[in-house]
Design a protein around this nucleic acid. Structure first.
Length: 292
DNA sequence: GAAACGTGGCT
DNA sequence: TAGCCAAGTTT
């Protein structure tokens, strides 16, 4: 198959060009890999790096995190965004302890049973922590394959069956090579085949790229709807969380009221945070991080 | 399948 | 500068 000629140049490129990331070790720690993957969901590597170091120093195993209140996980999450991920990671640690002997599970099904672990993260842990052959389909891989094989500027909004099948087809048969291919393809998407300004002159597989060969045509499909933020409940939730998280002790309601002018929206945001378990309303009327 | 869910850097 | 974008998951 023609695509097999992609393998040598990409693997060679990865060997010399890959970033040295702390969760990528010769003998990777599965817990460290899981933590990194959850943190990296929609959050750039540069912001994850220091948070991951701090987190792993404090909680070097699932057992260590599981022994702490969820609020500590939320506090340590800092400004990574989407703080429900901190709760899910904590719950995943508890599940590792209670169901999997304190270890990160080693099968796709068991990984998927962990809170916060979807198809991508399960596949990534299998490949990067355990060296298994798995179809790792993140936004980087999807964009790179769309360009290389389909000649499309961008992948569609959701993973199609054809897309998954094609990713499976180009995945090397050998287990260890497949795992390496997956991380290499992801790295290519992150460093070279980027969304806005790809560096085709630096691309190890440029000569085999359908998109480049056809003159890098612009995206022709429907334009992805912009994700609003300013003025949304998400913004208000973020403002409230910042106050609660950065205070040493539970805060008065007035401190939370100060973050947003509209009382209706403010209450709605606070209520949703309480429902999510990110904020704990205390009997004395103050609000803190959950202590259990 | 669409919508909700944070944050900050870059162009 | 306003908008785009970043290793997705859940409901």
């Amino acid at each position: 198959m023609a695509s097999s000629s992609l393998h040598p140049p990409l693997l060679e490129w990865y060997a010399v060009s890959a970033r040295s990331l702390p969760w990528r070790q010769a003998n990777p720690d599965p817990w460290g890999v899981l933590v990194s993957e959850i943190m990296l969901q929609q959050t750039p590597v540069n912001r994850v790096l220091p948070a991951w170091e701090t987190w792993m120093t404090r909680w070097p195993s699932p057992h260590d995190l599981a022994a702490e209140p969820t609020g500590e996980a939320v506090r340590m999450w800092g400004r990574l965004g989407y703080p429900r991920r901190a709760l899910r990671l904590h719950a995943a640690a508890v599940a590792c302890v209670e169901k999997f002997g304190g270890r990160v599970p080693t099968t796709y099904e068991d990984l998927r049973s962990l809170p916060g672990v979807g198809d991508y993260t399960a596949a990534a842990v299998l490949a990067f922590a355990y060296g298994r052959r798995s179809v790792v389909l993140d936004t980087n891989v999807r964009r790179a394959l769309a360009r290389l094989l389909d000649g499309k500027a961008l992948a569609g909004p959701s993973v199609t069956k054809a897309e998954r099948r094609r990713a499976e087809e180009v995945l090397p048969d050998d287990e260890a090579t497949a795992a390496l291919w997956s991380v290499a393809l992801m790295e290519l998407g992150a460093l070279v085949c980027t969304a806005t300004s790809p560096s085709c002159t630096a691309c190890p597989v440029a000569t085999m790229c359908t998109w480049l060969a056809s003159g890098r045509p612009a995206h022709d499909g429907p334009i992805r709807a912009a994700q609003p933020f300013a003025g949304t409940d998400r913004q208000v939730r973020g403002l409230i969380m910042a106050v609660v998280r950065d205070a040493e002790n539970p805060v008065a309601k007035a401190s939370l009221d100060a973050v947003w002018p509209d009382p209706m929206q403010r209450e709605r945001a606070l209520d949703s945070l309480v429902v999510d378990g990110l904020v704990d309303p205390l009997p004395d009327g103050t609000y803190g991080l959950p202590t259990s």
